[in-house]
Simulated scan of single mutants.
Amino acid sequence: MIDYFLMIALTFLSLAILGCMYRLLKGPSIPDRIAALDTIGILLLSMVAILCVLLRTAAYLDIVLVIGILTFIGTTAFAHFIERGEVMEYGDDQSGS
């Protein structure tokens, strides 16, 4: 019975990803698109975690960690880009060289 509920959860998550894809493509502003991209990453992370439970394996938990890290880094980089207009800052380095 739990397999049935997990399949329903995967269906709802895939529908949510489709909704986020629409927002990603048609978003009225850049922050809306970034939020949609971040949400897609979290939904993919959730889908892989549910697949781990459904397949009764821990083999995909490393993938969950990688998706989580990449989602966080990507969202942080996009937010920094929106705030300052550049991802990497050069010059005025206090490293002493």
Rank of each mutant, 00 (worst) to 15 (best):
L65I: 13
G85S: 09
T71I: 05
G96P: 04
S97Q: 05
R84C: 14
F81S: 13
Q94N: 13
S95L: 00
V64M: 06
M88V: 15
S97H: 03
T76C: 11
Y90C: 10
T75K: 14
G85K: 08
V66P: 12
I82E: 10
I69Y: 05
F78P: 07
L65F: 00
T71L: 03
I73D: 03
D92V: 11
T76A: 15
E83I: 06
D92G: 05
M88Q: 14
F81R: 14
F72V: 02
F81D: 11
S95V: 00
F72C: 00
E89Q: 11
A77I: 06
I73R: 04
D93H: 07
D92R: 07
F72D: 00
G85R: 13
G91I: 03
L65G: 00
A79E: 06
A79W: 10
A77V: 09
I67D: 04
V66A: 08
E86Q: 11
G74V: 07
R84W: 08
H80S: 15
Y90P: 07
E86S: 13
I67K: 09
T71R: 11
G96V: 00
F81G: 05
E86H: 14
I73W: 07
S97K: 14
L65V: 07
E86Y: 15
M88S: 13
A79K: 06
G68R: 09
F72T: 02
I82S: 13
A79T: 11
E83L: 12
Q94S: 14
G68T: 07
A77K: 08
D93I: 05
E83C: 09
D92T: 07
G96S: 03
I67Y: 02
E89I: 04
T76L: 15
T75W: 10
V87H: 01
V87C: 02
I69N: 01
G74D: 04
E83F: 08
T76S: 08
R84V: 11
R84A: 09
L70R: 05
I82R: 14
S95T: 02
F78R: 06
E86M: 11
A77L: 08
F78N: 11
I73T: 12
I69S: 02
G74S: 14
E86N: 15
R84Q: 09
M88L: 11
T75A: 12
V64I: 05
E89V: 07
I73Q: 04
F78H: 15
E86D: 09
F78V: 10
T75R: 10
E89G: 10
D92H: 06
L70N: 08
H80V: 07
F72R: 02
L65A: 02
G85N: 08
L70Q: 03
H80K: 15
S95Y: 00
D93T: 10
V66R: 12
I73V: 14
G68M: 06
I69M: 01
A77C: 12
F81T: 10
A79Y: 14
F72H: 00
E83V: 06
G96L: 01
V64E: 02
I67G: 05
A79P: 06
F81N: 12
E86T: 13
V87F: 01
I82F: 08
Q94K: 09
A79M: 06
E89M: 08
L70H: 08
F78Y: 10
S97V: 04
A79D: 03
